[in-house]
């Protein structure tokens, strides 16, 4: 798994670190980690519905923050559990542009093993950075 939950950081919350060879891989890993906080068996989520997400931000970490907010939004507004199918991130004139295709289905308590409801993404020690050849992110979710 390209993400790891941290034992000792978030006590009432849940913290994780994720990595990727490039930004699309990193964003996909962070999205899966966030969904994995809510649902244990990600493989049980079937791709019945599609949601396209397009975002723009001048900071890469806030682009990730906005992206996670979208996934949390669909979880509450439509009870949709979404996984990233394709994601493209471009940089142009000091702005980052994200175009993602996500697929999933509404939560079904008989098939999806629930864990915790994610309330929000906090900015506590939140970062996205490039270390050598890999991208790394640290996230603390409010539970």
């Amino acid at each position: 798994m390209p993400y790891k939950f941290l034992d000792e950081i978030g006590i009432a919350d849940i913290a994780f670190e994720a990595t990727g060879r490039d930004l699309p891989e990193l964003f996909t890993a962070v999205a899966d980690a966030t969904l994995n906080v809510m649902i244990e068996n990600l493989d049980a989520i079937e791709a019945h519905e599609t949601r396209r997400i397009e975002l723009k931000n001048d900071a890469i970490d806030m682009l990730l923050f906005d992206f996670l907010q979208e996934l949390i939004y669909f979880k509450d507004a439509e009870r949709l559990l979404l996984r990233v199918r394709e994601v493209q991130i471009d940089e142009k004139d000091g702005n980052y542009f994200l175009d993602a295709t996500t697929k999933g289905e509404p939560l079904d308590a008989t098939r999806h093993e629930q864990r915790a409801d994610v309330k929000a993404v906090t900015l506590h020690d939140f970062y996205v950075k490039k270390i050598d050849d890999a991208w790394k992110a640290s996230v603390l979710l409010d539970i």
Partner: peptide
């Protein structure tokens, strides 16, 4: 009462 142990650790 407040937690003394993380969720991640408790589930282990």
């Amino acid at each position: 009462s407040g937690r003394t142990m993380s969720r991640t650790k408790a589930r282990k």
